[in-house]
């Protein structure tokens, strides 16, 4: 892995939501680095905290949510660093889009239905003091890059575009101000197979041509396998394993990553013996003791109930928080023949 500059550096970040019964600990002690030019994918089941984490990074949490502790350090292109938590609201507004933008699931919800695409371009331009004609020029270029008819799309209303086109419009708009980082939350989840394919291809092309990093949130292991450089598995609000995509998939060190892969059908794998994970994700108001996965884990022993495992480096950039990472690895190697 190339030792590029770190763009996002997150340390001990914890986020919780207030609920009737108490505080929901949605994200607990999360630390990671996003390097320049990399795609980092967060995978995990619904409710594992992956979306909360990414909303938290940009302070876009809903009212009930709050960052309890931790730091989010962002490094500008010129090397200057800033803690996102310390930005004023005005500074944050300028930061979003220009430095870091987001593409959400369900493009229809993210595009204002009563505005033309052009209005959204101009709005963004105005908010960031960008010249109108310059903004239009750049938008048209980006639309072509994501394989849309620029002129037609520019004057269209969202309802005149298909789901795949809208998702590509969002992708293009997110790049309008040349941000360093794009955060994408399940960008291909609600779309059809061939539409998903064209979005993935467009994304890969953009990555080759333009200079930006991606944080990608998905429950779809296959999409992560295809586009991620680094994969982080989240469970019950924590990163339980993180590393280069091949390490995490072929040399899994955490029982939960192992179990997720063991439940994922693969098209080209012939007749497969797969296994579900028993039970369901834990209550995050009163999370289980020790390793939060122990109740559902086929590798669990007494120590998993009593002691919380620490995230430790296995090799290079591969980390896992599992008491039985050697057993997991040995079992995974039996399954994978690479």
């Amino acid at each position: 892995m190339k030792p590029n500059k770190v763009v996002f550096s997150v340390r001990d970040l914890s986020i919780s939501y207030s609920a009737e019964r108490g505080r929901v600990k949605a994200v607990t002690n999360v630390s990671f680095d996003l390097h320049e030019g990399e795609t980092l994918a967060f995978i995990g089941e619904s409710g594992c905290g992956k979306s909360t984490l990414n909303l938290g990074l940009l302070r876009l949490l809903p009212r009930a949510g709050q960052i309890d502790k931790g730091s989010i350090t962002y490094t500008y292109r010129n090397g200057r660093q800033v803690d996102i938590r310390a930005l004023t609201d005005r500074q944050l507004k300028r930061f979003l889009w220009a430095e870091c933008s987001m593409v959400f699931q369900g493009a229809l919800n993210s595009l204002n239905p009563v505005l033309r695409v052009s209005d959204m371009v101009y709005d963004t331009a105005r908010a960031h003091n960008l010249d109108r004609s310059e903004a239009k020029k750049r938008a048209l270029e980006l639309f072509e890059k994501v394989r849309l008819e620029g002129k037609r799309v520019f004057t269209a209303y969202p309802h005149e575009l298909s789901g795949g086109m809208r998702q590509r419009v969002l992708l293009a708009l997110s790049l309008l101000l040349k941000p360093q980082v794009i955060i994408m939350d399940e960008p291909t989840t609600a779309v059809d197979i061939l539409t998903q394919r064209s979005i993935l291809e467009v994304l890969k092309e953009l990555r080759r041509e333009l200079d930006f990093s991606v944080i990608f949130v998905s429950h779809d292991l296959a999409v992560a396998a295809e586009i991620a450089d680094i994969v982080a598995t989240m469970y019950a609000g924590e990163i339980v394993e993180m590393g280069p995509v091949a390490d995490v998939f072929y040399r899994s060190r955490h029982a939960y990553t192992f179990s997720l892969l063991d439940a994922a059908p693969r098209l080209s794998a012939g007749d497969q013996e797969l296994h579900s994970i028993p039970g369901s994700p834990p209550d995050l108001i009163e999370p289980p003791s020790g390793c939060k996965f122990h109740e559902r884990c086929r590798f669990a022993t007494d120590i998993c109930v009593s002691t919380q495992p620490e995230l430790i480096a296995e090799t290079g950039r591969h980390f896992a928080a599992c008491h039985h990472s050697d057993r997991v690895l040995a079992t995974r190697k039996e399954v994978v023949q690479v």
Binding site: I193, L194, R197, A222, A225, E226, L261, A264, L267
Partner: peptide, 19 residues
Amino acid sequence: ALLSAVPEADPYVTKKKEP
């Protein structure tokens, strides 16, 4: 087209696919 477009939960396999 469909079969060639589906990403797979296997990094080597999915990167080698030709949509």
